[in-house]
Design a protein around this nucleic acid. Structure first.
Lengths: 99, 99
DNA sequence: TCGTATGTACGACAACGTACGTACAGTTGC
DNA sequence: GCAACTGTACGTACGTTGTCGTACATACGA
């Protein structure tokens, strides 16, 4: 189900596409600022759960986030180590940039 | 016709989406490495002119490239100054990253 | 055990993206 | 003038993306 790419499998264009959506960029910023969250507590916006599930998948498949089951929750976190190792400086410049 | 955004109008998600396509990423790298080129001399790949026109528009509208008419040619160049000013470090990390 | 909470799976649908062929418009040079 | 060159405009086809509702699976707690 949850197929996370290995560090070496993470592709630049996938990461850029994933973060090239305003909602997903926001998600990445929240995870960067606040650390691990469950799916329901990342955003306040009135977005349907099925839409969010879609965005978790895009971010996970691109290698931007980890998705770790924990009880009945699914904990989300940024793959900062892997992204920094593979694309040095990229995540910082994206997360710190103005919109 | 050719509507380039001002430096302040360049949006991060537009830039990320534009560079989140392998062909456009390649184009940006060629322009970075070799400087100003006309449309026909950027890529060797057998891609139709109308498809390329589409990609020039995406890159131009996102603020990634300048498109400057010159005689019967259209000279393309990276907007490095603007991108570096607005999103420090972003372009370098993208262009230097592995695919 | 049974209801509640959390999140996924699936199907639908409009909008967008990417590719092409063809036709056209401007510039250059013979 | 006119043919060749450079690139855009337009129409088209087809896959992808983003959104939702509904149904479902799993885990927790009373």
């Amino acid at each position: 189900m949850a197929r996370h790419p290995t560090r070496e499998q993470i592709e630049l264009t996938d990461v850029l596409s994933a973060l090239g959506n305003p909602l997903r960029l926001k998600i990445a910023r929240v995870l960067d600022a606040h650390g691990e969250r469950n799916c329901g507590s990342v955003l306040d916006a009135p977005i349907s759960k099925s839409t969010l599930t879609h965005h978790w998948r895009v971010l996970r498949d691109a290698g931007v986030i980890w998705q770790k089951p924990s009880g009945r929750e699914n904990l989300l976190s940024l793959r900062r180590d892997d992204l920094d190792a593979r694309f040095p400086g990229l995540l910082d410049s994206v997360l710190r940039a103005p919109d």
